[in-house]
Structures are given as C-alpha cells and as structure tokens.
Design a binder for these strands. Structure first.
Lengths: 211, 211
DNA sequence: CACCGTAGTTAGAAGCTCTAACTTCTGTGA
DNA sequence: TCACAGAAGTTAGAGCTTCTAACTACGGTG
C-alpha cells in the first residue's frame, strides 16, 4: 500500500513479502489454505525453499499475514460503503460481493478456525472496526427503548459495545444483521445452497430488510 | 450401529474401521481436520502406518466417512426432535447443543470446504433428509399464499422442494430458519462472538422465534 | 489338511516444514 | 575507493507426512 521508509533494503523486503503473498493467494484460491505450501511458492518464485524463511518466520506467520490482509480488505470495503451513505440492505449486498469475489479470502476469516489459534491484537482490532461501522449503519433513534428480552440483556452488559453510544435495540439489530449475513454467506460459499436452486442474494436482501 | 452380516472377517473389519474413526475424531476434536494423521492413528492403535490402507483408501476416504457419520448424527438428532413434536425454537436449541457438544464435527460439515471436493450422493441424500424435516417443522397452512417477492420466486421454481408439498412461505421460513441458525452457530463456533460477551443462545432463540 | 485371501509387516519414493551451516552479494562508513 | 557487517540466498539434512510395492504370516473354507 504505502511506500515503506526509504531504506532500499526495506523496500525490497516489502516487495518480496508482497510477491510471496500474491502467490499464496493464488494457491489458496485454487486449493484452499490447507494446500498452501511455502516450498511451492518458493519454486514459483524461482528460489529454493528455505529462502522464504527470511521473509516469514513460518507457514503460520504467512497465514496470519494473509488473514490480516483479508480483514483489512473487508474493513476498507465496509468503511467505503458506509462513507458513501449505504443502507443495511445495500451494505449486505456489498459484503456479499466482496465474499463472492474471493470465497477463500472470506473463508480464511470466517471459515473453520484452527483450534489453538489466537489472532494477534491488531487483527482483532480490525474486526472491532468492522463491527463498529455495522453499529453505525444499524443505528436508529438515540433514545430507543429495549423491545425484547434479549434487548434487556444487552442493555445490562453489552460487552464490546459498552463504550459505544448505541441503544440496545441498535446493538440487537447489528448482531442480527451480522449473523443473518454470515448465515447466508457461509452456506452459500460452502456450496450448501447451490443444489436448492435459488438466488441467495434475494434471500439475503429480505433477511436484512426485515430488521 | 447395526451388526453387519455374520461373516466374522467382515465383523472384524467393521470393528477396526470404527476404532480408526474413534481415534480420528479424537484428533479432530483437539487439533482440527488439518491435523488428522493416518500415521499417528496407526501408532495409537499399535500398528504401523500403511496397515490402515487396508481399511481406508486414503486420508480423503477416511474424512469422507467421518463427514458421513457427522451428517448421519445430525440427521438423527433432528429427526428425533421432530418425532417428539418440537417447535422451531426448540429445534434450533437442539441443533445448537449438538454443534456445541463437538464443534469440529459441526465444522467438518459446515466449515470451510476443500475447493475441489464433491460429496458422494449418499451424503447429499442425508443433507436433503435434514432439510425435509426442517420443511415439516416450518410448515404452516397448506394453502398459504406468497407474501414477499422472494416467496413468488420460490413459487415459480423451488428447486429441491419441487416434489414436496410445501407452500412457498413455508419454504421461505425453512430457509430463513436454516440460514439464521447457521449464522449464529458459525460465528459462535469460530469464536467470533466470544469477545462480544453475550449468550448466543438467546440471540438464536429470538432470531428463530421471529419467523 | 491344503490353500487362498486377508492382515499385517518393512522399505522406500516424494512431498512437506523448518534448522544449520555456508557462500555471495551489497549498502554503508572510514 | 576500499573494507566490512549484515542481509539474501544456497545446499544438506532431520523429522514429519501420505501412499505404493513387495513380502510374510495367519485363519476360515472347501
């Protein structure tokens, strides 16, 4: 993205790291994360295996970098849509397009997690960023009162949204938006909706419209 | 489950296959599918690597068998609940409990798919079985009329539900039930809801109740 | 009782991640 | 301009994986 400090060594380093990641995305798109091979990437780049360890401490660090980039891309997409003054329905469509444009990128974030894995703080920060935008898109009247039992629970302890100026119905709407979206997307991208023969985009639109 | 034909050779075979699968589930539960190792299973069972190839053609066939068992288990759970006359809300809770009792088993079915993979016919049949029960649980008046634009689309070509006697609002309800459930579950099991600090079961109940 | 097929063995090819030791190149300071 | 420190890349190899091939040993059936 931005040019790193003038140091030419550093620039070259960043360039190679980017090229490694490009090849990695290529492999992931065609065969999934499990098939990601440092060796194969090195071969594609015309250098021999262990050379890549100058740039990434190991396979896990490369994957973490890819996850970070995926989150960053989604967060930027969501922010851009919000800045352009989107509705919830339109935002859902935008996120769906983002996911469909590279399913494995979506699945890297929201697919099966590795049991032991804990995302580093800067990654969870991007995740929070996304949820915060969601909250703003779903905001209603500032002094909205709780309407359902779950609203009341959210009002008592809203966890992550404690610091944010959002009524509990707003938080509820944002959560429902998020889970309904993920429901359609995760099933669609895993291919579980294909045999049912309808357009998931239509279902998604109505699911989100009904908030 | 059922005793296979008396042939003692066959019985022994089935027994060993089951033991292999038990060890496989153990590994999957603690480290995920990617960590599943035929070699390690063989070692645990006190025999040497290639011996397992008498029982499973390879890693992929073992995983397929596990996926089949997982589907079977979910289908049985859903059928049992339906037979006991469950409501949609209660069914959602039952499925959630099933998923929470072994997250990796759920994720094996609904998590990140391997790009090239196509499930064998008998597995997709079980998947259909589950959806059919869902349709019955979500059934309303038989002569219900379409209520939303998506209902109309479903009425024109309902794909898989063509042969089934369900009104399009019923199909719509079943699909919404399914996607909302998957939305909460996939986020919860992947740990994306944990930092938000609320009980996903409550959200799920209200999401499903609102159908 | 002999035999055929199955269950298991070891050896080994090809691939992976990752470490260690070595060489070669290059940007920088004297 | 030259010397040198450190970065980039190399090969070798340990230890893991899946999976094939060839061989031995056992056990149910004719």
């Amino acid at each position: 993205m931005t040019e790193p400090a003038g140091n030419p060594r550093e620039r070259y380093r960043a360039q190679v790291r980017d090229e490694v990641k490009r090849h990695a995305w290529g492999q992931i798109a065609t065969a999934g994360v499990t098939a990601l091979s440092l060796n194969a990437i090195a071969k594609e780049m015309g250098m021999s295996g262990p050379a890549l360890y100058r740039y990434f401490a190991g396979r896990d660090e490369l994957i973490t970098a890819l996850i970070r980039d995926a989150y960053r891309s989604l967060a930027d997409t969501v922010r851009a849509a919000h800045a352009a003054g989107t509705t919830a329905v339109a935002l859902a469509a935008v996120i769906r397009e983002w996911a469909l444009s590279d399913p494995q990128r979506y699945l890297l974030i929201y697919g099966t997690p590795v049991p032991g894995y804990h995302a580093p703080d800067d990654v969870t920060a991007i995740s929070d960023e996304i949820l915060t935008v969601l909250l703003e898109v779903c905001a209603g009247e500032p002094d909205e009162q709780p309407k359902t039992p779950f609203d009341v629970v959210l009002g008592m302890s809203r966890g992550w949204a404690d610091a944010l100026p959002a009524s509990s119905p707003t938080v509820h709407r944002a959560l429902a938006f998020w889970t309904r979206l993920q429901g359609v997307l995760s099933l669609e991208l895993a291919g579980h909706l294909t045999p049912l023969g309808f357009d998931p985009g239509l279902l998604l639109a109505e699911e989100v419209a009904g908030l």
